[in-house]
């Protein structure tokens, strides 16, 4: 009982705009599709981010992108190579790209990794059956921050 009240009080104190992690529906994008603030309020971990990019069950970014520094077999060619992407975009823009690249590139084939609504016939993961209950984003807020941390290290200059 006391615990519940305390948790509630803390959530209220944090306030909607600063709630951590920021829920997918509460994310605000700039005109260019960037997300200024960290979704978790803490810096991501680049090494964990690298794993998310290569993992089929997580980001599976290498299905579409080549990243020379990653040791992942069979990197795809559907999207551009991410080598040097840390020179091309700042971390706010990279966060926006990972969360929902459609704000940066309207209509892009790249999936939105931090979004939970607006889908047509969403499934229960890869089962082919209808999704049960509330959808989870493809990546958690923490995973998004880890991926962003890794992407910012991809510099060539």
């Amino acid at each position: 009982m006391r615990f519940t009240t305390l948790t509630l009080a803390m959530t209220l104190a944090a306030g909607a705009a600063y709630a951590n992690p920021v829920a997918p529906g509460d994310v605000s994008f700039s005109d260019t599709g960037a997300i200024a603030e960290s979704l978790t309020g803490t810096p991501g971990d680049a090494a964990s981010g690298a794993k998310v990019l290569a993992d089929r069950g997580a980001g599976n970014c290498v299905a579409c992108h080549k990243i020379s520094s990653l040791d992942a077999a069979f990197q795809g060619t559907v999207g551009p190579s991410l080598d040097g992407v840390g020179d091309r975009w700042d971390s706010a823009q990279l966060r926006g790209l990972v969360a929902n690249a459609k704000h940066t590139f309207p209509g892009t084939i790249m999936p939105s990794f931090y979004k939970t609504a607006g889908y047509i016939r969403p499934g229960d993961e890869f089962s082919g059956k209808a999704a049960k209950g509330d959808l989870q984003p493809l990546l958690s807020a923490e995973q998004v921050e880890d991926v962003v941390a890794f992407l910012t290290t991809l510099k060539q200059q």
Binding site: F74, Q75, G76, V78, I109, Y119, I120, G123, L138
Partner: peptide, 25 residues
């Protein structure tokens, strides 16, 4: 041309826009 599912991909996204490309292996 409908972009189904949580990955929001249509048949055309893969088989019209990207034939010839590799998606993973």
């Amino acid at each position: 041309y409908t972009r189904y599912g949580q990955l929001e991909l249509s048949c055309a996204n893969c088989h019209e826009d990207n034939y010839g490309n590799y998606i993973r292996a």
